[in-house]
Nucleic acid binder design. Sequence first.
RNA 1: UGACCCAUGGUGUAAUGGUAACACUACUGAUUUUGGUUCAGUCAUUUAAGGUUCGAAUCCUUAUGGGUCAACCA
Length: 553
Amino acid sequence: MSEERSLNFLEEIIEEDLKNGKYKTIVTRFPPEPNGYLHIGHASSICLNFGLTQKYPGYTNLRFDDTNPVTEETEYVDSIKEDVKWLGFEWKHERYASDYFETLYEFALKLIDKNLAYVDDISAEEMAAMKGTPTEPGKDSPFRNRSVEENRDLFVRMKNGEFPDGVRTLRAKIDMAHINMLMRDPILYRIKHAHHHRTGDKWCIYPMYDFAHGQSDSIEEITHSICTLEFVPHRELYDWLIEKLEIYPSHQYEFARRNINYTVTSKRKLLQLVNEKHVTGWDDPRMPTISGLRRRGYTPESVREFCDRIGVAKRDNMVDVGVLEFCVREHLNRIALRRMVVFDPLKIVITNYTKDEEILLSENNPEDENGGSREIPFSKEIYIERDDFMEVPPKKYFRLAPGQLVRLKSAYIIKCEEVVKDAAGNITEVHCSYIPESKSGEDTSGIHVKGTLHWVSVRHAVKATVRLYDRLFRVEDPTDEAGDFKEYLNPDSLQVLPVVYAEPSMKQAVLPERYQFIRKGYFVLDRDSDNDNLVFNKTVGLKDAWAKEVKKG
RNA sequence: UGACCCAUGGUGUAAUGGUAACACUACUGAUUUUGGUUCAGUCAUUUAAGGUUCGAAUCCUUAUGGGUCAACCA
C-alpha cells in the first residue's frame, strides 16, 4: 500500500529542513488582500499552504494583507473566510497585517534610528524620474541625507496627520544604483488619509507591501512564506529588511501561478467583469471564483483534486479547463442522483398502452449499490428529447426513427410507428407501440436495442428552469490577445431554458444535493429557486461521444 | 539592450548521473438499460549546439525561446 508519490520542490525543501533539524515544525500562511473574491488560482495556493502543514507537522495561518485601505472591504474578508472553509481547510490563527500596524511603526522607527530609512519630500513623478531604469542607475533624492533626528521628527509628524496625502514618504536607504530596481530606496510608508476597514481613522500612514508582508511573516514566525513568481525580485528586499530589523528570519519561496485557459484569474479583471455587469456578480457560475464554482455546482473535493493534479512548479503554464471538468465529473459521477429531465420535448403517444399509469422504479446511482431507487410514473403520453428522434436518421444513429426500436430508461422498449405533422410540416408528435414483455427488470422479450432514452410522463412532468453555461471567453488566453480582454468574452456563455420537464421526484430537489440529468449532465439547484419554480445550474456536461461523431461527419 | 526566473508528448506534473513515468486530452476497440461509467490499447530519441562522463532530461558553456522587474498596488 506504499503510494510512492514524488515530492514537489517545496516539499523537498521542507523535508530537507526537517531532516537537517532547521525546523521541528513548519508554519505557513495564506495571505490574501481583501480586495476581491478568491479564485481558482487562490485555491492552488490554499491547497499548497494548508496541504503542506497537513502533510508535515505545523500549522497554517490565514492572514489578510490589508495595508491599502482604499481597496479593501469587510465584504471581501467574509467571502475569503467562507471560501477557505468551504474548501475544507482550517487555519490556526486569523491575522491581519493591520494587527501589526503599531509594531510596524516601531520597526520603521528602528530603521530610522539605524540611519537605514529617511523621509523623502519629492513627488511621485520626481521619484519615478529619479528611479532610473533597469539599465541605468537612479539618482539620490536631495532629502536622502537628512539627519536621524529630522527623519524621526518628520516621520512622527507624518503619523500624526500633519501632512496631506502624497507629500512625503518614508523610504529605505539602500542603493539608488542597485541592479535590482526594488532595492533603489523602496518606499516603506505612504500617507493616506483613508478609512481602514478595521483600524478606522486611527492611522493616516500605511506600510507598503514590502514593509508589511515579510514583517508579518516574521512576527508570526512563518517558516516557509510561499508566494508566486512575480515576487522573486522582492525576496532580496524581504531578506534585507529582516536582517536590518533583526527579527525572526522567515524565508520566501516562489512558485508559478496556475493559469487556466478560456478564463482570466486576476482580481482586477474579475472586478471589471463584475462592475461592468458582464456577469451577475462575483459568484456568477461562469466566474472562476471559488464562490462561482460553488454556485456552479463544483464540490470542494473536486477543486482540491484539481489543485492536486496540476501540482506546483516554477515554469509558466496554461492548464486546460478540461482537467478541472474531469475532476468534477469524476466526483459527481460517484455522488450525483440520476434523474430524468427533458429539455426540448417531443410528445410520444404509446398507442397500445391501455393502463392509466404505472409506477416504475429506477436506481438513483448505478455507481452506488446502496444508493437506492425512486419511483417514476409512466403513462400513455410521454416526452422525449426532440433530438432523440430523426425522421431520416444518419448512419450509426441508434435513437428513435421510423420503424426503429429504442428503450425508454427503466421502462419499456418502444417502436416508432407513425410521425404526426402539422400543416406546416413540423413534427407535432410521434406514435409508438410498446412491448409489454420488455419492462425493465423483468424483460422476457429477448430483444436488444442499442439506444436508451430518458423520458418524462407528460401528465406528471414538473416544470423547471435550467441555466446552461459555456466558457466565459472565446479564446484560450484573453490577456494575450490584442486590445481589451473583454472583447473576447463569449456572447453565448449563458443560455437559459425557461421551461424544461422533469420527473416528479424533482419537486423534492434540495440545494446541497447534486443531480445527474441522465444523458444531459450534472446539475445543482440554484439559490434563485422558489416554491413556484426550481432553477438548476449546469455544472458540467457528460462526455458526449455521439456529438463528436456527428461533428466528424 | 541589464538583472533575475524558466524550458520534458497537445496539456500538466515526474524521473535528483544508470535504458523517459503518471494523469488529462485525442484516437482505437470491448462492456454497458445513460453514445455516461468501467476496461484494454495507441500517441516524446527531453528547445539547439558543444563539453564533462563508461553513461546526461539531470552537471558545465553558449545560443534560442518564454516570463518577470522602472505603482505612494499587492
